[in-house]
Simulated scan of single mutants.
Amino acid sequence: MRGNVNKSVARVVLAAAVAATLGTATACEDSKDDKPAGRGSQKPAATETHKTLGKAELEQAVLAKADVKAKGYAIKEMTKAELAEGDAAKSDKAVCQPAVALMGSKYSPEPADSVYRTLGKGDLKTKESFSGMLRVSSYAAGGAEKTIADLKKAVEGCKGGFTATDGSGEKQKFTAVTAQPAAKLGDEALAFDMSGDGLKFSVKAVRSGAHVTVLLGFNMLDPMKSQVPQELVTAQVAKLEKAIAKNAG
């Protein structure tokens, strides 16, 4: 199914970020909050009290244009229609479902609240490109921990690949899931790639107390060189944990 790239969130991400990748980043709309992310990362009190951020607070805690513009990224809020297109993605192997679900918009455990953004950056001459989806979610007690634990099991149990089916019935075969080094952020973090059929998706996820940050990345100019810029993950976790600490105070 190469070229179609999956009709779930992967397609939505590419459509939303294509302007940035083609060098027209200014065409993207500003996100709701243009306050820059804090540089420091305070340890969230949520790890002890389970006080979580609601929808409005997550909107303030997610990366905004002012946080990424200087580094050349465009950022845009995902619309309800785009999220609805993502729908549910399913795996042919139960252990792989948590990883496959990242390419859709339905997860288990289900977050209490989530906010989504698409990000893009690209250079046609060098073929350096990043198109990605950012999700920041809050969970009921134990949900964030289980989300990361299930993803770790998926990475370990799906090394030989799996077949994903999106909400429209389109199939995508992945031949390998490969663990990658993860930066020491939040309470726990992981990184991995899912590759097959001439393309690769890269994922980085971080748990901060009862909250999870997930960035899924794709290189539309050179699909096998996809990656998630660590600077985006670091900035998002710092901004989120600052909001968590403020909320717990």
Rank of each mutant, 00 (worst) to 15 (best):
residue 113 D to W: 10
residue 113 D to M: 09
residue 114 S to R: 12
residue 114 S to W: 05
residue 116 Y to M: 09
residue 116 Y to W: 14
residue 117 R to Y: 03
residue 117 R to W: 03
residue 117 R to L: 06
residue 118 T to C: 15
residue 118 T to G: 10
residue 119 L to Y: 13
residue 120 G to V: 12
residue 120 G to Y: 11
residue 120 G to M: 12
residue 122 G to T: 06
residue 123 D to I: 07
residue 124 L to Y: 09
residue 124 L to T: 13
residue 126 T to L: 08
residue 126 T to S: 15
residue 127 K to A: 13
residue 127 K to N: 13
residue 127 K to V: 12
residue 129 S to H: 12
residue 130 F to C: 07
residue 132 G to R: 02
residue 133 M to A: 15
residue 133 M to K: 14
residue 133 M to H: 14
residue 134 L to M: 15
residue 134 L to Y: 06
residue 135 R to F: 05
residue 135 R to Q: 15
residue 136 V to M: 04
residue 136 V to H: 02
residue 136 V to D: 02
residue 136 V to L: 11
residue 136 V to C: 03
residue 137 S to V: 09
residue 137 S to E: 07
residue 139 Y to I: 06
residue 140 A to K: 15
residue 141 A to E: 15
residue 141 A to P: 11
residue 141 A to T: 14
residue 142 G to P: 11
residue 143 G to P: 07
residue 143 G to I: 06
residue 144 A to W: 01
residue 144 A to Q: 07
residue 145 E to H: 00
residue 147 T to W: 00
residue 150 D to K: 08
residue 150 D to R: 06
residue 151 L to N: 05
residue 151 L to F: 07
residue 152 K to S: 12
residue 153 K to L: 06
residue 154 A to F: 00
residue 155 V to I: 11
residue 155 V to M: 04
residue 156 E to Y: 02
residue 156 E to M: 05
residue 157 G to D: 10
residue 159 K to G: 15
residue 159 K to H: 10
residue 160 G to Q: 13
residue 160 G to C: 01
residue 162 F to I: 05
residue 162 F to P: 01
residue 162 F to K: 01
residue 163 T to H: 03
residue 163 T to F: 04
residue 164 A to R: 08
residue 164 A to K: 08
residue 164 A to W: 00
residue 164 A to G: 02
residue 166 D to V: 05
residue 168 S to L: 12
residue 169 G to K: 08
residue 169 G to W: 08
residue 169 G to Y: 10
residue 170 E to A: 09
residue 170 E to V: 07
residue 171 K to Q: 12
residue 172 Q to E: 12
residue 172 Q to V: 13
residue 173 K to N: 14
residue 174 F to P: 00
residue 176 A to I: 00
residue 177 V to S: 00
residue 178 T to Q: 08
residue 178 T to M: 04
residue 179 A to R: 00
residue 180 Q to W: 00
residue 180 Q to T: 05
residue 181 P to K: 10
residue 181 P to S: 07
residue 182 A to V: 02
residue 183 A to K: 13
residue 183 A to Y: 03
residue 185 L to M: 10
residue 185 L to R: 01
residue 185 L to D: 01
residue 186 G to S: 03
residue 187 D to Y: 00
residue 188 E to N: 13
residue 188 E to Q: 12
residue 188 E to Y: 03
